Simulated assay, not measured.
Amino acid sequence: MKTQSADLNGEAIANALSLHWGIDGVSLAYVPLGFGSHHWVANEPYGRKWFVTVDDLEADPAGRTDTESYDNLSNAFRTSEALRDRAGLTWVIGPTPTRTGDPIVRLTNRFTLAVFAYLDVEPTEFGEFCILADRDEAMRLIGAVHNFTSSVPLDALRRDTLNIPKRAGLHEALSTLDLDCDSGPYAARSQAYLRENADLVLRKLERFDRLVRLATDDPRNWVVTHGEPHAGNVIRTRTGDLVVVDWDTVAYAPRERDLWMMVNDANPDWSAYRDITGVSSLSQAALEAYRLHWDLMEIAIYVSWLRQRHGQTEEMKIAWSSLQQYVKS
């Protein structure tokens, strides 16, 4: 997150690092990064660094209970550990286990804590790959993950259903567009924008619903997927290695869940993935379904945020800008 939560206490984080990981005497520096988790760099007195991530269980967009959200995150990270340790995919950057082997701990009833090796990486942002060679290498890395599906325990792994978190709230917003909304500085303008574009959003939802059945009809070909292998999560270190981070969205799903971010009209070539997996074809319906799913998921989340009480924060500024982007994409 760009803004540090007032509910998070640096002393509590430092104490948890000492208790669960044996990392003592750290100084913490908040990192305004991403749009979901809270991040710090933890500096040990003798120079070693760690990347610390705190997730808010109450902010789970899928609406899971705190316990369900905790279990889902823990299982996702255990999957990344299996890919790294069992399959030998060393570029999978999973969490550093605690003294008792757990990938995360509860910092409080509401927040979880995970620790990662600190990486010195080149600056990067969410979105498409600027360099085609990086895109091809990313497809090979993701293809290797898919190839090693049999190395991962699947019983506890989430099965993707293409559910749109907060969809009910989006439908409610679309059905009450004549009402005034004064929940914050972006409320009235987002309400007006949604009113102007309601038909476009409804058409996206209708098209998506038709595609979902085609995209998920044959689970025999499903694989372990990362979920968000964009240029912000497939990153190059200063030593030149490409690594994959942010494994919290792992799920068992059609391979197109990963590939839609890399294969599109502008860059249709997916031979790098085909060569490493031997897959001869992709489902165009699944690619489009996952592309629409992303757009609608973002729209539903941002509408929810902007209808709630909010202030003039960097997150709300991004939410308002992103809502317009995804409605028209």
Score class of each variant (00 low, 15 high):
S5Q: 11
A6N: 11
A12E: 15
I13A: 00
A14C: 08
N15Q: 15
A16Q: 04
L17K: 03
S18G: 15
S18K: 13
H20P: 14
G22E: 09
D24A: 10
G25I: 08
L33E: 14
F35R: 15
F35V: 09
F35Q: 15
G36T: 05
H38K: 07
W40K: 05
A42H: 00
G47A: 02
R48G: 12
T53R: 08
T53S: 10
V54P: 14
D56W: 07
G63Q: 07
R64S: 10
D66C: 04
Y70T: 00
L73Q: 12
A76W: 07
F77K: 01
T79F: 01
D85Y: 02
R86H: 06
G88K: 03
V92A: 02
G94H: 05
P97T: 04
G101L: 10
R106A: 15
R106T: 11
L113M: 12
V115C: 13
V115A: 09
F116E: 07
A117W: 03
C130P: 12
R135H: 11
A138H: 08
M139E: 13
L141K: 13
I142Y: 03
G143W: 07
A144M: 14
F148T: 13
F148M: 15
S151L: 09
A156F: 09
L157V: 11
L157N: 03
T161S: 14
I164M: 09
R167K: 07
T176R: 07
C181H: 00
S183W: 04
P185Y: 01
Y186N: 04
A188I: 00
L194I: 04
A198T: 02
D199I: 09
L200G: 06
L202E: 13
L205I: 11
F208V: 06
R210L: 13
V212E: 06
D217N: 12
N221E: 14
H226T: 02
G227P: 10
G227S: 07
G232A: 08
R238A: 12
R238F: 11
D241K: 07
V243I: 08
V244I: 11
V245R: 02
V250C: 12
V250G: 09
A251L: 00
P254Q: 02
D258A: 12
M262L: 15
D265A: 13
A266P: 14
A266L: 14
P268D: 05
W270T: 05
A272N: 02
Y273R: 04
I276N: 05
V279M: 06
V279K: 04
L282H: 05
L282V: 02
A289R: 04
A289Y: 01
A289L: 08
A289W: 01
A289S: 11
A289D: 05
R291G: 11
H293C: 06
D295M: 03
D295P: 05
M297E: 11
A300I: 06
L306H: 00
L306M: 03
R307Q: 10
R309W: 06
G311L: 01
G311N: 03
G311F: 00
Q312F: 08
E315R: 06
K317R: 13
I318W: 03
Q324N: 12
Q325P: 13
Y326E: 00
K328I: 04
K328R: 10
